[in-house]
Structures are given as structure tokens and as C-alpha cells.
Design a protein around this nucleic acid. Sequence first.
DNA 1: GGCCGGCGGGAAAGGGGTTTCAGGAAGATT
DNA 2: AATCTTCCTGAAACCCCTTTCCCGCCGGCC
Lengths: 350, 350
Amino acid sequence: MESADAPATPHARAVAPRRVTAAMVAEHAGVSTATVSLVANGKSAGRVSAANEERVRAAIRELGYVVDGIGSSLSRGVSSTVILVAPDISNPFFARVIAGVRAALGNDYQLLLSVTDAGQFPSAAETRRLLSLRPAGLLVDAPDETFLEELSAPGPVVLLDAPGVGDRLPAVNMDVEGGARDLAAHLAAQGHRRIAYVDGITGTATFALRREAFLDEAAARGIEVPPAARVATTIDVGAAAAEFAASWAAWRRDGITAVACATDTHAYGILQEARVKGLSIPCELAVAGFDDLPYSQTSNPALTSVRLPADDLGRRAAEQLRRLIEGQALEEARLTLQTSLVVRASTRRR
Amino acid sequence: MESADAPATPHARAVAPRRVTAAMVAEHAGVSTATVSLVANGKSAGRVSAANEERVRAAIRELGYVVDGIGSSLSRGVSSTVILVAPDISNPFFARVIAGVRAALGNDYQLLLSVTDAGQFPSAAETRRLLSLRPAGLLVDAPDETFLEELSAPGPVVLLDAPGVGDRLPAVNMDVEGGARDLAAHLAAQGHRRIAYVDGITGTATFALRREAFLDEAAARGIEVPPAARVATTIDVGAAAAEFAASWAAWRRDGITAVACATDTHAYGILQEARVKGLSIPCELAVAGFDDLPYSQTSNPALTSVRLPADDLGRRAAEQLRRLIEGQALEEARLTLQTSLVVRASTRRR
DNA sequence: GGCCGGCGGGAAAGGGGTTTCAGGAAGATT
DNA sequence: AATCTTCCTGAAACCCCTTTCCCGCCGGCC
């Protein structure tokens, strides 16, 4: 293809230019690889003369040298990668968590996500492979106990949103119970005495916590949540709408004046169906959600919801992880972040 | 803490049991590390005697040996990781793409996601670090040209959903233009003659393609889309609802009988606002979306939409990538997958 | 002027695995 | 019985970087 006197190698070797190694930089700068390593890693202060430092920097620039992640990881015994393991990433909440994590990790660590099929955690084999990449640390979102056991991690791990799981591991949680109680208190203050509760069908612990705290606080404030008004659906607008369509007649007869939902998605379905039925919200029926998803601000009417500190969750977890990686002790191994009730038109009676 | 005669090392060395290496397995099984490597990688056929193979397997089991990803990557020159770079992961569509990718990659490669802040691609520095992990291959979702240039990847890359970008790289695309044309044809067949189009405000090429194909096909079928009925909003239910609320009076005067949207999210906003206005859908106004998001099946009325082959997109892209990684030539470098119009109640006049 | 202290830099030892290559043992052939 | 295959096996090189010594050199001090 090229010059006729090129060696007749079967592979077009010239196409893939050789990776630039520290040795090449060293030769180009007339120093040893040790010096290159020091400069490239910013550890040159007081160890490399200014003259050599500049020559190495010039060589790095000129050759386009990038420290090889693999070689570096092997040599240091650990990579500079933080792996975030998450069973479900397809919601806007999670995007904010990631933003928080990235902000806290900065440039020192590289964030990679390991996701599996809907709601599942990696198998034991996958987990071992993951660990064999020698991540600097692991963040695990909404973990289940089985996965944590398999993990039995040799390295730093911080859990996110792990109420009641992995008690021995550091975690950052959100006070969903407080949020649920605030919501119950708000509905009580608005004068409701009989309320329906729409739960989610899922294995996640957070839903049980929300429900129990809500029911407990409601009871404490003299609110009744009759058994017939406790339902559960998959987390799906349509399913919630259908459930409400089927139940509303009975609830109305029973004197229900408000519906609290385990997540906003349920509430959207109820708002939709209520509109079909021509119900006036919040006058005939107040509706409240949980999670404060983006659409809740602009829904019609805007939805009262419990806002979760998504970016804080990510940020704090990543900060904790950094401390662990850097060998510092954690002042508090398990943090709980405040949630806040956002009252909007769907429950605000005037 | 332990026996009094233990060496007074400051670190609790016993806590972190030493990593199990191939050398340890080799010693335990009475063979060399070469043999261990062959067995552990399933390359033992015809190279290792049955007896030794069994002894090595037993040792691996007994010691819990896992091939070290870092050492292996360094030695082979490449890791067995496939990195999927994506600017936006928080939508259900993407979850299906991932499922497709995972299915096609199987156990041979490990999928990791690199995501950045909302809609952004990694910076040049981040990109270089990513490549320094020596991924076996890269999948890039909805790439922008700038990122592809920085990539100038030395390794296998396949683009997903990259209409009109990175022409020289293999890609798997979806025929959104065909879908848009089908939609225009459907609305024409339903008797509409004046239609509104709600576009998305975003840099993504796919939106321009949808719009142009729709307008072109509409024109070809004698449908008018008056300039005043061409609007664009951010991809947000509330924004679309507001836009529709502001425009509907004028549109109605202008004889508009249908609205086509660049994505279902817009259509949800319109459905919501139409209900507020008491419009009968599809009789007074037909509404159609694009993407066929999950909620479109259960919305009220169910939404006509263009379904995109999400899992196929992931699967085919991963298959192509595998071929590249394994050095096979691609029969077709750029694939385009069919989309399909799903007609539901929001446009179906009876 | 000799000795000491310190700074700067290099040689070299890993870190864990893969792969080549040469050679040994066992079985086949003459 | 000698030679040739065939099969297996293990030693060793290599991948790229980090880090630990250790040494040479320079200036300062007595």
C-alpha cells in the first residue's frame, strides 16, 4: 500500500501509532521514567529541579503523553475509578444524584456506572469482575442485602439510599420518614380526617418506611386511613389512574377527602383520572405525592410533594467515599439528609 | 489485639487478606502460572492435560481466585470493558438501550457507563483518561461532532443514534424520518388538512430530521402547517402545556385540527391542557407524539406515537462493536433500524 | 582543604497476567 | 532399540507505571 520497501507485515502497523509511554517521554526529555512519573502526577515539588520539570512538561505536551490508567492502576495497586452501582438509572432523580457525585469527586477520581437490567443487581460473577477492576471505591445506590453480602468488599464502599440495609457499612440516607410525617401533618392541618394511601409495588425499603411513617403520624393526628383506602400499584401513571378509577366511588362514599401517594408518578395518574371525572382539586379531593419529580412543579394543579435532596445525596456520599479512600476516619458513618415538604396547589385549600 | 507475639505492625494487616494471585493458584495446584492462565481463560482445550486442568480448577475454586482485570488488561494490552458514553441517561428509552447492549455483549465484555452532566459530553481531559483505561471498545450515544473529534479513537467505536454525525465511523441509527413521514401520512388519511407542529428545543440532530421529514411529507400530501403553528419548547410537559394554552385560540381560528409533537413529552402537556380546556380528543383536536414513551400506552386518551426500536438499537450496536473488537469487517458500517407508527385513540377518528 | 549534609535523579524491583518458545516425556514408527 | 512425533509444560519476557532505595554531586562548615 505504502512505500514498496516497507516490511511486508500483514497488519497495517503504521495505522495504529504506538502508544506514548513514560519511557518515550523520559528519553525525549533526557531523564528517567521516575522523573516523568513524578512530574506527570504532580508530585514533583521538592523532588525535581525546575529545569527538569520544564523539560518533562514540554516532552509530555509534545508527545501527547497520557498516563496509562492500566499501568498506573497495577503499579499503585488500585485504580482511580469510582464505580457507582445502581439498579435503576432511568429517572431524573438519579441524574441529579450523579451530578452531585461528580461534583464531589472532582478530577481526582473517574466516575463509571455499572448498571444491570431493570431493578437487578449484578450477579456474583459480575460483582467479582467489577471488583477485579480494582476501583478506588464503590458507591451503591438502593442496594439489596444479597448484593452487599456478595460484595463483602475489601475496599471503600458507601451506600446511598440504603435505609435498613447493610448496617455495618457507611451510608447516606434521606429522611423519608420525616417527609412522610410532614405530609401527614400538613394534610391534618388542612382539615382532612379520612385519607387514602397509594403505595408502590416494589421491593425497595424506602416505600415501606414512607408508608409506616405516614400512617403512624396520621393516626397520631386523628386521621383515619381505612383499610379499603390502602392500595398499591406498580409505579406507573396508568396503573395508578386505573386503581383510582376503580376505587374512587367507594372512597367518596367512605368520606375520603385526600390521597397521599408513595411517589409522584402515582399522583400524576390520580390527577389525570380525577380530571376525567371532573373532580375539583383540591376542593373535592386533595392529592399529594412523594419525590417531587420535575413535572410536579408544572402539573395541573401543581402537586404537593416531598422533595428529596438528590444532589446532596450524591455529593455527601462521594465526600464520604473520598474520606474512606484517603484513609480518614468518618465522623459519622451513617448520615441522614433532610427532606422537605413542598406545598403546592393540589392540597392547598384557601 | 490478637496474639501477643504478632509483629507490631501499625496496620492491621490481617484484616485485608492478600489478593489471590495466579501464582498462588499455580503453587497450590503444582503447575505454572502459564497453565493457570490457560485454564482460567478457557483456552485450555488441547493445551492442558485433563488431570492438570482439573487440579487447576479445584485450586481456583478452593482459593476463590478471580483473574485480575488490571493485570490482565495490562498484559493483553486492552481491557475487556466496553464503555458506553452517553450525555443523557435519565429516560426509560435509555434503559432499554442498555438492556440491548448487555444482551449482545454477554459475559465476554463488561459494560460500564460514562455519563457527564446533563447533556454534556466529557471534556478532552476526561476523554483521554477514559481512553487510558484501554476499553475494548466504545459505544457513543447521540454524539456531537466535537466529542468525536477529540475521541479520534485508536480503538473500535460504534455510534448510536448519530444521524448526520461522525460519517466515517460505524453507527446504528433509527429511521426517524420514516416514522415522521408515516405519522404525516396517517394524519392526512384521517382527513386533517391544517396541522400544528411542536418541536423540541435541543441541539440533537434527530429533532431536525423529524421536523423536516414531517413537514415534507405533510406538504406532499396537501397538508398545511402554517408558520404560526410551528412552535418549539423545551422538552418538558409544563412548557408544552403553556405553549399550547397560549396558542390554541389562534390555532383554532386558523382551522388547525391536529398537533404533531417532536416527542411524547410535549404531547402529554398538550393532552393535559386540552383536558383543562374541555377539548374532545381526537374529535376537536388530534394529538400525536414521537418516541412512544411508556406512559403513552396508558395516557388518556392513549397517545398515537412513533415507536423507536430501543433495545434493538443497543443490541445491534453492541453486535457491531463486537465484530470490530474481534477484528471482523462490518458488512454494513451504518445501519438504520425501522421505526413504527403506533396508532392509538388520540388520533383515531371513527 | 577535607568532611558532612542534603538535594536531585536514576536504577531497579515489583504489581499480576499472558504468551511465546524451547524442551522434556510419552507414545508411535521403523 | 533408536528416532520421530505429538503433547504438555514451565521459564521468561513483556505490558506500563510507581516507588523505594541509593548514589553522586554540590555547597557549606570547621
